[in-house]
Nucleic acid binder design. Structure first.
Lengths: 172, 172
DNA sequence: TTAAATAAGTTCCTTTTTGGAACTTATACG
DNA sequence: CGTATAAGTTCCAAAAAGGAACTTATTTAA
């Protein structure tokens, strides 16, 4: 089975990976967050071949992650800028950055730190519950089948899904 | 330049992508969080070829994301289980899942929802500041060069880094 | 206790995707 | 006006992925 056949499975992660889950695409997006906007800049910073860059940028534009906006007088040169949809991928990259800082570098030697502009402090980004505000980790969160799917599923299937999707189903 | 040449750049995101930023690897990890543990199960659920699966699992073991633990009497069959290092990638997948729910499905039709076991409610995972507890998004967070790097960088370079890495440097 | 089924890979070969370099077309600069 | 830069395309060789059959043990079932 080809990898792309997972792209339309009824799973948010699989579909998200269908859009951004390609090696070069992920690096391109990282650079988007680092304010890279032009074809030649992406190419120089990442060193990937032009046709791959062209292909990946086009796909990101097709998926409404990037806008291709003309600049200059002629309107025939373009900048690729994150859309709102693209910008909200920040959480994914923040999470990856934090993970890398925590696990790939010695204590205190991480290449980057985060500063929260609202309070001005260097901090760690935590995941928290929108309802009670408590911290979230992989043990105190459970993924459950959404209401829309529940209604169209038979009981046995529902249980299988809950079992299959339960992050917290088995904590050993 | 090959994609793998980015894997040892002094950037947590690039290094993290070097470990998990491969299409199949990301899907394999998704299934790890969904409690898949055995070679044949991964193969059936994902449909990738055996040699790719073998290769990707080995790399995850090499990088201490998965443990290869024997099961059964003989000790010659194995389960692949998330290590603590691997489990803490949950935030990345939670962020991707949430993004997919928000942007790829109609309101209320997302395939999965999250329940916070500590408070029992269906909720959204938010990113929050470890210091002040306030919410984080890509506009109120700034990535700054870590202390260890600061010391070994000349001023001009430091400024370039801050410019380059500043998520919040340019908010238009 | 032998036969069949399962688990976890390997090997071999074909197809697809990358990587590298040169070529194109148009705009910008000096 | 000539050269440099931007944003691609095209072409080809090399690398990686996909498919299927082959291995080697180890359970399970008859």
């Amino acid at each position: 089975m080809k990898r792309t056949e997972h792209n339309d499975k009824p799973c948010s992660i699989a579909q998200t990976l269908g859009i951004i889950g390609d090696s070069w695409t992920l690096l391109i997006l990282r650079n988007c967050f680092l304010k890279t906007r032009r074809f030649a800049d992406f190419q120089q910073q990442l060193g990937l071949t032009r046709h791959l860059l062209s292909d990946r940028l086009s796909k990101l534009v097709d998926n409404d992650i990037l806008n291709k906006v003309p600049y200059g007088k002629s309107g025939k040169r373009f900048e690729y800028r994150l859309t709102a949809k693209g910008a909200s991928l920040a959480k994914v990259f923040i999470a990856m950055n934090q993970w890398g800082n925590d696990w790939l570098f010695e204590e205190g030697s991480a290449p980057t730190q985060y500063e929260h502009l609202d309070c001005g402090q260097v901090m760690q980004p935590d995941l928290s519950c929108s309802e009670c505000g408590g911290k979230i980790n992989h043990k105190n969160i459970k993924m459950v089948v959404g209401d829309s799917i529940k209604e169209t599923m038979r009981t046995t299937e529902k249980e299988q899904w809950n079992e299959l999707l339960g992050f917290a189903a088995n904590n050993d």
